[in-house]
Design a protein around this nucleic acid. Sequence first.
DNA 1: TTAATTTAGCCAAAATTTGACAAGTCATAA
DNA 2: TTATGACTTGTCAAATTTTGGCTAAATTAA
Lengths: 96, 96
Amino acid sequence: MQFGERIKQLREEKELLQRQLAASLEIDTPMYSKIERGERKAKREQVITLAKLLNANEEELLTIWLSDKIIENIGDETFGLAALKLAEKELKKKSK
Amino acid sequence: MQFGERIKQLREEKELLQRQLAASLEIDTPMYSKIERGERKAKREQVITLAKLLNANEEELLTIWLSDKIIENIGDETFGLAALKLAEKELKKKSK
DNA sequence: TTAATTTAGCCAAAATTTGACAAGTCATAA
DNA sequence: TTATGACTTGTCAAATTTTGGCTAAATTAA
């Protein structure tokens, strides 16, 4: 599940309108619409605000959001998976 | 192994100077130095050029380079590993 | 149809990235 | 010591990318 898809799901569960969330995020509705469709990406702070507005788990949303950014970073490189695995290895090394 | 570290290794094996590679890449030596130390990141085209100059495997270098970008993207998020694993799952889904 | 919601496209402002330059350190040689 | 060559550091401006606002179009609901 991608980020936009997930917040749309949560928004619809709560029966909120895009323009309501947009107002709370202090952006306009078209911008919010783009975030929901993945055409633009939310900023970290916006994800946190959204988690509150949607009564969602902040870390869950941040994880999906970051995953989206990583996927976007990879683009359509054929070696994307190899790079991901290498990154995982390096990240583990780093955390030690 | 990170990208800068790897190209430094290759450069030293070939006994080339930073300024020689810098000239071939059409950037100045300080900039090349920063790339080697990971202070700046190379552009995709530069990685390809470097692979040629260093007689290295292009895909190997690109993979390390992309991995570095991913790691940088993650920053020090505590859920970085979770996001990586999710990204991997989504990437596999995407490629189908 | 009309009204409300959502999406599309375009343009400017803001932020980030890239690169050049000047000046610095460090090691070695004369 | 002084000089030279390799590399590094810091700062600034140019270029690119990202972000957001606006208008208008499309879709959906009543």
